[in-house]
């Protein structure tokens, strides 16, 4: 039974998408709460550099994407301490430079043509068993870290110094959050691609906001909305033959619109 499911590309895609949406929910909440949307974009763009370097050195692509994301996250953290440039300028420089360098490096490899569209917009239907295993392992690791660090992560989001006074190691918590984001971006690339990853993080979280009274409920609701969007998007893609990744994002956007409009109506 399980074997039959794993053998079918549609079910593999659905399973992979659901797992990524599950962890993207709570992480996306932190991206929204901490206003890190642009930061997420930067990490996502650098993933392309990861692919280029991974291909160049013939390393495992998932691993090289994750490594480049982590490296960039650490660089950004160090740079943000010395504020000689505004942080959005800094992010913009690194974001587009890493994207451009990635494209240039890929272009230099004459004898090796890769499917760029797949990386930019996702190639959900091409997920293989190995990818699924990566997503499952990465997802479990992130979920475990989230549960374990939840209180501390919330505290540094509310007030960094208050968190420090109460004994949380704020530096490590920030680093952990960056690592988790890097990991989820490395895995989510398969699903929606470099250009749409941030959407999968922030749209379900933002959609969950009007129906959530506590941070925990918002995180869980964001996961559910993300998973619904993956299911709906893939179904749409199946019947209408639309690209899978963008269909998922369109579905998520639909949920966002419905929830915010419903909220606006109930308020007025």
């Amino acid at each position: 039974m399980i074997d039959a499911i794993l053998n079918d590309f549609f079910w593999r895609a659905l399973l992979g998408g659901l797992m990524v949406a599950l962890v993207a929910g709570p992480l996306g909440c932190f991206v929204v709460w901490r206003r890190m949307a642009y930061f997420g974009d930067t990490l996502a763009h650098s993933a392309l550099l990861g692919i280029a370097l991974g291909t160049l050195f013939q390393a495992n692509l998932n691993l090289s994407i994750a490594l480049v994301c982590v490296a960039l996250a650490v660089i950004l953290m160090l740079l943000s301490r010395q504020q000689s440039l505004a942080s959005d300028t800094m992010l913009g420089i690194l974001s587009h430079s890493s994207l451009a360098i990635g494209l240039v490096v890929l272009g230099l490899m004459q004898d090796f043509r890769i499917d760029l569209t797949g990386y930019l917009f996702g190639d959900l239907l091409a997920i293989n068993r190995r990818d699924l295993l990566w997503i499952a392992l990465g997802g479990l690791l992130i979920l475990g870290m989230l549960v374990f660090l939840w209180r501390g992560l919330l505290m540094i989001t509310i007030h960094d110094e208050l968190a420090a006074v109460e004994g949380h190691s704020t530096g490590w918590l920030r680093l952990a959050l960056m690592l988790m984001l890097s990991l989820v971006i490395a895995t989510a690339m398969k699903i929606v691609g470099v250009l749409l990853i941030t959407a999968l993080l922030i749209i379900p979280a933002a959609a969950a906001r009007p129906v959530s009274g506590t941070p925990e409920r918002m995180a869980i609701t964001a996961s559910l909305i993300g998973m619904l969007a993956v299911t709906l998007g893939l179904t749409l893609s199946w019947f209408l033959d639309t690209p899978a990744g963008p269909s998922v994002v369109v579905a998520a956007f639909g949920f966002f619109l419905i929830l915010w409009l419903a909220r606006a109506r109930s308020v007025s």
């Binding site: 929204v32 709460w33 901490r34 206003r35 989001t157 509310i158 007030h159 110094e161 208050l162 933002a206 906001r209 959530s212 009274g213 506590t214 941070p215 409920r217 918002m218």
Partner: peptide, 13 residues
């Protein structure tokens, strides 16, 4: 702390 401003996106009682 001084003027702690909470993100309105974070639901918190």
């Amino acid at each position: 702390p001084q003027n702690l401003s909470l993100q309105p996106t974070l639901p918190l009682t």
